[in-house]
Write a protein that binds this DNA or RNA. Structure first.
Lengths: 328, 328
DNA sequence: TTGTATGCGTTATCAG
DNA sequence: CTGATAACGCATACAA
């Protein structure tokens, strides 16, 4: 690989001149012309490490995602990467593959790589995470969960929950089933659920909460078991994936959606539009969350002051999987 | 950030001693004990750049993917990253977001980052790609398409096509619709299609080819237009996503699957199991393709000889979306 | 405008 | 077993 020294020799100048040429410093027209040619010809690429070694900045941003096959993180990643590209930063994606230990490990790995900052797509934030981030000693933005010690971007899950809950109530549904996840995921397991329940208050709703996981398949199996013995006319899945799982079970059980049962989810995943009937859901601005994460991280890196928490709005999309309660 | 020099000073030894200590060289029990403590206490992390600057190896592998929301690449990425982790390499994922230029750009970016090698998930390989790879001057493994100048991992698309085609024929279907993509994607647009057509030869099949894109939505719209005027009893989508799009259209048109129309896809995407009825498809070993890519790349980096092309097998999974032709 | 010298954090060589 | 020193590729302060 050709170095700045090689270029300097070929051009018959000092390497500092080449460096200046490369970084837009003062060079004579003649040397510039010569260097233009030589650099192009030899396809010279500055060594980023050597640069970083001096500059103390790597222009690399690390991100840790819980898994690759999530519509939400994929969209956020797109937003994140697009913003980062504009500011000439490289994104280093680390997939923790649903493992808490791998998340911790990733924090340390990224710190070793000397990334300028870390964007963490969180399911939960444990003391081990906090410790690892402290040791990493690098700006951090957390997306999807909130924590008092870090800069966080969260979705207004309470509002989202309320939207769906209120929609069900307003459409005359009085027997409602909610497929949720456990409380270790605060955003989905606690806040979103709270929102839903708030909407039910004072409406004499016959409400059942069923605990499942984020996996489509678990929701499917659970629904296969619950739906036959349920009198619910409206079922809410805590995520669109859960809703899809429920939908398959309903189809298999010959329960018609929405005629016999209305179904709603959360997220606004692409797949909710690809199935029939299309699923009513709450659209979350995932891509925007990534863009915002990039923006905040850049400000943090430049040591600016930024609000600790930013909340993103969302919007209910009513589609064909839900309708007015036929019995009212 | 604490450096080897700081550690050396604190311990009252030379930095070369610390270096030896860190890299498993000869150190006395006493110095070792002292350094153990100091390193742990100060949470010292060697600077990867400084290391790379000397070592000429960065232990980073770059990968370029066409888009983030693809089941196939996500699975491959998982395999790739898992293998890489075992050999202490970091994966640098670059998303080209469906843009050819961004792919080329990414090759150059990764070269600047001095990655030890590149895994390219290809849709097509143009002369511009070839040129960029040559300039990058780094080991390359291409997954999903074949090219005579590079090490490639491909799927046996011809076999996959034949499996589905032969299955349809064997089940008495004589009027068959194929939703495919254009020839710029050789693997899917040419090879896979060829396989399908081979299976039809000599069987007097009434066969119609419909060109669409990889997007679920395009397939949906195309199907909405084509299905009503088609007499086909079996429809093949060139990918599972295409099949899903067709399925939605069929549902909307009140065409029963599989009673009135059998439907099959390719890939073995998770979603084919999440819909009802589950879709007959060909399972591709995507995760394995990633693992193999890692293995080959490592050998290439160590300058070993490796076969230019490796073909992965696949397997037809018959599910509920297909059945015997009711009219025979 | 150009060149010299120095340092970034690490590893390796070689003498002690 | 240990320490001084050079080298990796680059940027920059300073001198010319």
């Amino acid at each position: 690989m050709v170095t700045i020294n090689d270029i300097a020799k070929m051009a018959g100048v000092a390497k500092s001149t080449v460096s200046r040429y490369l970084n837009g410093g003062a060079v004579s027209g003649k040397t510039k012309a010569k260097l233009d040619e030589i650099v192009a010809e030899n396809d010279y690429k500055p060594n980023k490490f050597a640069q970083s070694l001096k500059a103390k900045r790597t222009h690399m941003v690390g991100t840790i995602i819980p898994r690759l096959n999530s519509f939400a993180t994929n969209e956020a990643l797109r937003g994140l990467e697009n913003s980062l590209r504009l500011s000439k930063n490289q994104l280093l994606i680390t997939n923790a593959d649903q493992s808490r230990e791998r998340e911790i490990e990733a924090i340390s790995t990224l710190a070793k790589q000397r990334v300028d900052g870390i964007v963490f797509f969180a399911a939960a934030i444990t003391p081990a995470h906090v410790k690892a981030f402290e040791e990493a000693d690098v700006p951090v933005v957390i997306v999807g969960q909130s924590h008092p010690d870090f800069h966080c971007i969260i979705h207004d899950d309470e509002k989202a929950g309320r939207s769906v809950g209120a929609y069900a109530v307003a459409n005359g549904h009085r027997n409602i089933l909610v497929f949720g996840v456990d409380e270790s995921d605060t955003a989905v397991g606690v806040t979103r659920r709270n929102g839903i329940e708030q909407a039910f208050e004072g409406h004499d709703i016959d409400y059942t909460f069923v605990k499942t996981s984020f996996a489509m398949k678990d929701a499917y199996e659970k629904a296969l078991e619950i739906l036959p013995q349920s009198k619910a006319t409206f079922v809410i899945g805590a995520t669109d994936n859960i809703a899809i799982g429920i939908m398959r079970a309903a189809h298999e059980l010959q329960i018609e959606i929405p005629n016999q049962l209305s179904l709603a989810g959360f997220g606004g995943y692409e797949i909710t539009e690809a199935v029939y009937p299309r699923i009513t859901t709450v659209h979350y601005p995932f891509q925007e969350s990534g863009e915002l994460a990039a923006k905040i991280l850049m400000e943090l890196i430049l040591e600016k002051e930024v609000d600790l928490i930013q909340t993103l709005d969302n919007e209910l999309l009513v589609r064909e999987s839900t309708q007015k309660n036929a019995w009212t």
